[in-house]
């Protein structure tokens, strides 16, 4: 793990790492990756990956309206809204 790699991961994760914290971030990540490296020793040939402990399937429901419109309640706790829209800084000039 080097500087370029950790900066790329931070970018993917939409996080910024301060310059003086890069070394610590690299050390922390490297330790954890060393720990998870132990997985490569496991013989997993023909093992089916496990997604749900009880192998439950996705439930489906009828396509009916089941919830009330609570937009105003949800927007009341938003940082910035206008006319029912969430505001963000200008994206396109």
């Amino acid at each position: 793990m080097d500087r370029a790699e950790i900066e790329n991961i931070a970018k993917l994760a939409k996080l910024h790492i301060e310059d003086d914290q890069i070394d610590e971030a690299i050390a922390g990540m490297s330790n954890i990756l060393e720990l998870v490296e132990q997985l490569s020793s496991a013989d997993t040939k023909n093992v089916i990956p496990m997604a749900h402990p009880l192998d439950a399937l996705q439930r489906l429901r009828a396509d009916e309206i089941s919830e009330n419109n609570v937009r105003d309640e949800f927007q009341a706790i938003a940082p910035e809204t206008e006319n029912g829209l969430f505001l963000v800084p200008k994206v396109i000039d």
Partner: peptide
């Protein structure tokens, strides 16, 4: 690989 290990643990 982790999801496969998970199956082995189960």
């Amino acid at each position: 690989q982790a999801q496969k290990a998970r199956r082995l643990i189960q």
